[in-house]
Write a protein that binds this DNA or RNA. Sequence first.
DNA 1: CTGTACTCTGGAATTAATCG
DNA 2: CGATTAATTCCAGAGTACAG
Length: 286
Amino acid sequence: MEVNETAVKAFTGEFITSHPTLQTNMFSRDAAPLCHAVQPYDHHSNAMFADFSMTSAHADYHALLDHELDNLFQHPVEYTMGRADLTFENDTTNLQYNPLQVLSPESSSSSHAAFEQVDRRDHYDQPTPGQQSASGSLRRVQNGSQKRARRLKASVTVSKPRAPKVKFTAEEDAKLIELKEMHSLTWNQIAEFFPVRTSGTLQVRYCTKLRAKSTPWSDENIRKLRNAIEEYEADRWRFIATQVGYGKSAVACKEIAVQLGIAAASDTSVTAEHVSAASALRPEGT
DNA sequence: CTGTACTCTGGAATTAATCG
DNA sequence: CGATTAATTCCAGAGTACAG
């Protein structure tokens, strides 16, 4: 049978994060469903599995997701919080599904042995205390008249390993700055806008990467920066001279390094004045 | 020469800990 | 609770070896 590649991508999250409509709406609140744990369609077993996580912040998107996925499959798609697997019949118009199998440590190790292998990331996404989320999955229904079900189930409790690294996007950075600087929210409040990140992660991101860029640099800041760099560069050659020894000065080391091509001639970071000035600023023996 | 697999490494994300 | 730093971990790209 032919498997709709676009539909498969929906499970992987590629579609959702690249789809113009979904992306716009999702990122307007920094709330993209987190798709993970995908086992590709298997022609032998005629089945595929996919899991995703949604937090309470995604509630508004369920209807949108319904619509988009129905379009993809050209049939109504049922998704429930929990885990299910998809079993395809001979063609995409006549699909059947296996009973919902909610993941538990026991079931995953027995009936889902094959799935388990690709599902290592599943437990990464367990919510931290205070975060409301649930794992979810998608399954096809046999026909459109079948009533759709959507229910929430508690997440599986698994010891929490380190979360996977997810690069911060420009949109996330902008949102983070906005929430912090314009709305003055607490980090826990801000974290609610970022389902896949903790307050601590956001805090460190802001403090180490964003704040310096979002706040203007004064002339005084720039002057101090320039002085610090010049002093550091001068000290660099003084350090090198101490390593070379044999009475070779910092200036001599620099000149020879340039001649040998192991330092750029344009390196104007050190002059005799720099070295003597830097030395004069320091007590003996430092 | 090209493609592939593997290793190494720097940068970045995350977590934990500490301090105010 | 917020800010900061250190430690840990992961990822992507560069470099290298090797087979065809």
